[in-house]
Design a protein around this nucleic acid. Structure first.
Lengths: 297, 297
DNA sequence: TAAAAATACTCCATAGGTATTTTAT
DNA sequence: ATAAAATACCTATGGAGTATTTTTA
């Protein structure tokens, strides 16, 4: 009758590991218990979610579909619990996620002027969780840097800002006043390549394919790696200037698209506080007229 | 740890009945079991969701929040199950909900031409479930008549059509070639007043307040009631002309906004089939250029 | 006193654990 | 033979039932 979210959580672990014993370890339960719960889930659904035959475990089409919807449903259930708990407090709270380098004082003060009874909390995010925090309810709105995985989100564009490259000061290219993204094709990119699609177009150094680099997501870590000569990274200008280091050079790059900053929130929610913050953010951080319609992508 | 959807379902029943014994009856369980489960839910959340004091049961702020999110989460869990089951079938299926009177042959044939491998199923909806069928996964897309409760939906406007009044042929106003909505202020509206906001502006007959009429949602039922002299209703022109009866008069009404028809789907989903159908529907049913951005409201 | 929810108790379904078997390479 | 998942069997938690008590207008 009712879906069992525990089983769904177990399923997602197995789907990600594609290995029952490892998934069981991750879940802190014994492997037989996990096998039984997955079978039970399959019974509940009336559908097999894994092909367990010779050489390993793979998702069936139904399993793929379940994984796609399941992550979001689990996050939604977390969000529901958080919101119910928060609603029990005496003061209304609006939690705003934001990516490093973004100054949102103007937006929060404008919002506070209109909603003096609401307490604004801030939550610093990074590239990996700037959307997650909305989906699982840790934040009500999030100031994100595009591109983002936009399923289920409403977005309101705020502004653009140029992006720059951060190199070790001793790097040969650090002497040049300006450079093109192609010049960096032989260097190691220290972040999610998805965030710098222009770099993907360029030919890759053999090291990338041979030793896939685990991208780091905290700005401070990136800077540390850049300074140590491990490679380079691309950041929005405001972020790069906010975290200043003598051993890291900041250089403008031709052919690098500007970074778009937008306000995001769960499309499934209609809250006056969210609407109010969106207005405040658009009025203070946004450029141009606030006529821009809210676009769901 | 994991939210128990059974408890959530129980909670919603109690929140709607505001009475444990009646809710228990509706759920086909005993009242003590329900009391215990609600207590257990409150323990899980760490928050009280009902005020149970003298004279009755009421929602706390946390309860209100939980009800708001809970309905959608339950529907999402149903949708997830349906989609996983459907994904196990050999042929891909796209289910299209539609309100009566809408002819969607053009859209489905255009879609079928592009996606010959996809089986299109149709699901007739009514005023009460045109959005529900998307949220709980019975349909992938739904051709809806605005206004709709738009939380979590993506909408793509398709076309407008005028609305007309349906009266008993013997009604005095049925003789007039045309009438205004104010002329009907003393008659009983046989449908959800939300669907005809213009009528709400007019003064109401005393009977409305005294004996609130239970609106009916199926077109055939409305026509039956109109013919019997119980009142009048307002329908889009195409619907009114599709269901023709000799004992019911169709009259244009001044001051009645046109009915907007739109394609709706879950904002949280990104599916090529949905995108394909949206294109087909906009190209065949839509008026004007298909540049119209998808707007989440 | 009456109505509504909570408590006491019993029973059973099921999650989880350990030990072991089956299956496919 | 080995690795991976399934099965057997046991224990304990917790959900549901009936009967009863508590609470408050």
């Amino acid at each position: 009758m009712d879906l069992d979210l525990r089983k769904l959580r177990y399923f997602i672990a197995v789907a990600e590991e594609l290995h029952f014993a490892r998934a069981a370890e991750r879940l802190h339960i014994a492997q037989p218990a996990l096998s039984r719960q997955i079978r039970s889930l399959e019974d509940d659904l009336g559908v097999e979610v894994f092909d367990r035959d010779r050489r390993g475990t793979r998702l069936t089409p139904a399993g793929h579909q379940l994984l796609e919807d399941g992550r979001l449903l689990l996050a939604s259930s977390q969000a529901l619990q958080r919101r119910a708990r928060n609603a029990a407090h005496d003061v209304a709270v609006l939690t705003v996620g934001f990516m490093p380098g973004i100054t949102l004082t103007a937006a929060t003060t404008a919002f506070a002027a209109r909603h003096p009874d609401v307490q604004v909390r801030l939550l610093r995010t990074d590239w990996t969780n700037q959307v997650e925090v909305i989906q699982d309810g840790r934040a009500d709105v999030s100031i994100v840097r595009l591109p983002v995985e936009t399923e289920g989100l409403s977005l309101r564009p705020l502004f653009n800002e140029p992006r720059v490259a951060l190199l070790p000061v001793r790097h040969p290219l650090a002497q040049r006043a300006s450079l093109r993204i192609q010049d960096l094709a032989d260097d190691q990119l220290l972040q999610d390549p998805q965030a710098v699609p222009e770099w993907r177009q360029a030919p890759h150094p053999p090291t990338t394919a041979a030793a896939p680099f685990e991208p780091v997501h905290q700005v401070e870590e990136k800077l540390e790696l850049v300074a140590s000569g491990a490679g380079f990274c691309v950041l929005p200008l405001s972020t790069a200037t906010f975290y200043t280091r003598a051993d890291v050079a900041v250089r403008p790059v031709e052919g690098l698209a500007a970074n778009e900053v937008a306000l995001a929130w769960t499309a499934a929610r209609r809250s006056p506080l969210i609407a109010g913050f969106a207005e405040a953010a658009a009025a203070t951080l946004g450029q141009g007229p606030s006529q821009t319609p809210t676009v769901s992508v």
